[in-house]
Every structure is written in structure tokens, then in C-alpha cells.
Design a protein around this nucleic acid. Sequence first.
DNA 1: CTAGTTGCAAAGAGTTTGCATGGCG
DNA 2: CGCCATGCAAACTCTTTGCAACTAG
Lengths: 136, 136
Amino acid sequence: MTKYATRQRKALLQYLHSHADEQLTARQIGEALSGEEISASAVYRNLAALEQAGQVRRLSKSGAREIFFQYAGAEHCRDCLHLSCKKCGKTIHMDADEAERLIQSVAICDKFKIDKTDTVLYGVCGECQQGKEAQK
Amino acid sequence: MTKYATRQRKALLQYLHSHADEQLTARQIGEALSGEEISASAVYRNLAALEQAGQVRRLSKSGAREIFFQYAGAEHCRDCLHLSCKKCGKTIHMDADEAERLIQSVAICDKFKIDKTDTVLYGVCGECQQGKEAQK
DNA sequence: CTAGTTGCAAAGAGTTTGCATGGCG
DNA sequence: CGCCATGCAAACTCTTTGCAACTAG
């Protein structure tokens, strides 16, 4: 599906890559790349293609009508599971071994094979638990 | 926020309750309740209120622009984690003890406190793994 | 009665699509 | 050069909101 490395596509990929710990809306991405002159259509079309290719994951957030996107194609991201803090928004990369253990355990108990790309565990990270900070 | 038990709200709650294993769009819910005469506004307003109250969870699906809703208020649903099969769409309720073990393990390794209501693990269920069926 | 809730219709967002143009390989 | 990808703008669909009417308690 993706054959040409256009200026816009390169800029989008680079941006997603360097913001892999954030969950972004299409609009945020478009605005961030406004210097690169990329149209909304191109953003949506490329995100859709990347999602199909398993490079990007689509998420929703409590109370938000918009859909969020997050890069999931990084080398070590394919082997681990991800935690997302509801307070500060940060993404935590679970250790690969720990993820594997967790997935194995669920596979045995429930005969269920977890997909690492699609799954995100929501909750509160250590810092936010202590500080009670960053309601943002 | 929710003070009166109106006809519409009761119908909505009953419907969500009896379809807790499905992830539904607002439109699907509205159509299902068309016999009950409920307006789209009421569906959205009630879903938003229920979400805030932690009774309903909001989800997105790969490739789908719409947002999906799922009832999460059932007694035993508050103590367990949920698995969602990407092929057949079915929801599997993880055993409460197993869920607790998993959550504890993540709490220790990553200092991260998982929220049972917000989290859904995606993957493929046992039946779909064997049968390779139900692309639906 | 009184305040919460609904319906309707219009407004607002976000997302998709057709088509001509432009650019990568 | 040929085909893929982009831009633009219109079309769509989903969701929210204002306001008057309705209704549960």
C-alpha cells in the first residue's frame, strides 16, 4: 500500500516516531506538522494505512469524542506491553520478559492470546500515585 | 447527577445490562431502543453520565471511526479484568483471583496501578484460534 | 411544585472522498 | 513516464447544545 516515501509521509513517520509515548489526535499531528505543510487528508490516509500495517494503534479516552493515535512500530515496542497513566498521560513500556509472563499466564488460564499491539493497560503510574499531581 | 429514573434511562440501563458482553455504538443502542422511543440526545447524555460514574467504558476499534460503549457496572465486573476477542467480538471475564494476581504483578514490577474499569485486553479467544472462524 | 430530563432541530466537530494536480522512483 | 500520493473542498456522519415542554419525586 505504501510505495512512495513522500515528503509528507516521512515527516509524519518521523513525528510519530519521536512522540511514541504520547497519544495524539489527528488534529494535533496535523498542527505539529504545519511547518511541513501536510493536509488533513494526508494525515488521515497515512494513519489509516499505518494502522492497517500494525504500526499505529487507535485509542479512545474517557470523555473524549476524538480518536487518539499512537506509534507502535518501534523495535522494542513489538515485544512489550504498554501501560498508560490516566493522570499524566505518560506511556510506560513493560519489560519484555514481564510482558511475556503475563501473556503466557492469560493464555493458560483463559485460552486467550493477547495481541501486544492492540492492548494498552490503563491506570496510574508510580509518580502520580505519590504526588497526586498532574490532573492536567 | 442522575436523580430521576425516567422511562428512557431505565430502558437504556436495562439494555446495556443485558448486552454487557458487547461493545456498542451510540447508534446501535438508539436503534435497539427505538421501540422505547428514546432520542439520540438522551442516549448520548446518559452514556456520558454513566461513563463519568464509572458504569460504562468507552472504547475504539481498529479501523472504526466510531466510538464504542460497554457496560462495566455489573457486580462481578468490578472485580475482574476483561478480554475482548478481535475476531468474534466476545468479551471474556477473567477470573477475579487471576486478575488480582496480574494487577499485583504489574504493581510490583512497574509501580503501576491498573484500573480494572478502563482496561481491556485485546486478542483472540480460544475458539477463534482453533477454528480460524468468524471474521465477521 | 421544582428541578432534573427529554426531544427537536440546528450547530459543531471530526473524518472521508472525488478529482485534478503533483512528485517519487 | 506511470502510478501513487497529495490538496482542496464538498459531503458525511457522529456528537453536542439551546431551549421549550414534560415528568418523576
